[in-house]
Amino acid sequence: MAFSRYVALGDSFTEGVGDPDPTRPNGLRGWADRVAEVLATRDPDFGYANLAIRGRKLTAIIAEQVEPALALQPDLVTVYAGANDIVRPTVDLDALAEEYDVAVGKLASSGARVVLFTAFDPGSGGIYAPIRGRFALYNEHVRAIADRHGATIADSWRVAQRLPHGVTANDPRLWDVDRMHLGPAGHQLTAMMVLDALGVAHDLQPLPLPDLPTLSRRERLRADAAWTRGYLAPWIHRRLTGRSSGDTVEPKFPTIGRVVSPGGE
């Protein structure tokens, strides 16, 4: 399968937050860039745009990114929207799914191959465990939307099937220090998942993972307290004040252009 014009839509997940690269716009690489790098090796005229902006909820992603994406005439579109809605105190997932369905229908009717994502399984522990049921319901909506419009599913919920032995989806080595975004190893695995879902051959391999440190109970509590002060409290404050981490952020690659090689080469 070959593609010549790829446009990525979404929020921080697609923008690449957690996968730093100071040589790139917004200082980020991310799974979508990694996918584009592979696809570019198959077509010398390949072009890539990334319209994703951190903090965006589903309605904003649809309103701000779908029409600009269609104007770029892509033959491949990836969309991940809804994660920032799921974690709000209250959310009407059925109503959001109706919006999502219409937007995916527009993208699919353009003739582009559309890739949708299920949310990862937060498991029975961790900060998202209390709303695990929301994640599962969201995923059922995504699967139904994909069925209606012939979209491809990149199945994050089942990503454990491709993880190295002994590694779970909640393994901290796959996540950024903020515990909310994937780290480089997580972005690499996501890129592999997307390429596999598309049937695109690639040479990507999981990134090496360091050994997990053994922490005492006191050290874990100290680390949790530091994370609460440094990441959770600011996130809650933004929610309470109606602000977003993406309020002053622009898309990394707003138009179709040449793919940036690793390291900015």
Rank of each mutant, 00 (worst) to 15 (best):
G47C: 14
D171S: 01
L39P: 09
T41A: 15
L212P: 00
W31H: 15
H165W: 04
I86T: 08
L58E: 14
V77K: 04
A136P: 00
T255R: 11
F135V: 10
I145M: 08
E67D: 12
G183W: 05
R239S: 04
G125Y: 12
D33F: 14
G126C: 10
G30F: 04
L51G: 13
V38R: 15
G199Q: 13
T90H: 15
R158Y: 04
A108L: 10
N170W: 00
D21L: 11
D178M: 01
V7C: 02
G150L: 00
P206K: 05
A40T: 09
P164V: 01
L76T: 03
A108R: 07
E64W: 01
I127A: 12
E250H: 14
H149V: 05
L9S: 06
V79G: 05
L232G: 00
R179C: 03
I86M: 08
G150I: 01
T255L: 08
R134L: 05
Y138S: 12
E67R: 06
R222T: 08
P122K: 11
H187S: 06
R132I: 12
I145H: 07
Q73I: 00
Q65L: 01
V35G: 12
R88T: 14
T190Y: 06
R88M: 13
G230D: 15
N170K: 05
V104D: 13
H141Y: 14
V194H: 13
I86D: 11
A83H: 13
A160M: 01
L195T: 11
G230K: 12
D178W: 06
A83K: 08
M1I: 12
V77W: 04
T168A: 10
V114C: 09
G133T: 12
I127C: 00
V177I: 07
A32K: 10
D155H: 02
G105Q: 10
V38W: 15
M1E: 07
P122Y: 08
R218S: 09
D247P: 02
Y231A: 08
R5T: 02
F253W: 14
A49E: 15
G257H: 10
D94M: 05
G47P: 09
A112T: 09
Y138P: 00
A63H: 07
V114F: 12
M1Q: 07
L107C: 10
F117Y: 14
S124C: 07
L209Q: 00
P251I: 03
V77T: 11
Y48I: 04
F3Q: 01
Y6M: 02
S261C: 06
M192C: 07
P44M: 09
A49D: 15
D171P: 01
D85L: 05
F3R: 02
H141W: 13
A2E: 09
P164D: 01
L174E: 00
G16N: 06
V79S: 11
P251V: 02
D203C: 02
A223T: 04
T118L: 06
A233D: 03
S4Y: 05
N50S: 15
L240Q: 07
P130Q: 08
A225D: 05
L174V: 00
W235R: 07
A197P: 13
L182Q: 09
L93K: 08
G18N: 09
H237P: 01
S244K: 08
F120C: 06
D196C: 11
R258P: 10
D178A: 00
V200R: 08
R113Q: 13
V87E: 07
A60R: 13
W31M: 10
T255K: 07
T152L: 03
D94I: 05
S216Y: 13
T255W: 14
H181C: 02
S245V: 10
A225Q: 04
G166N: 03
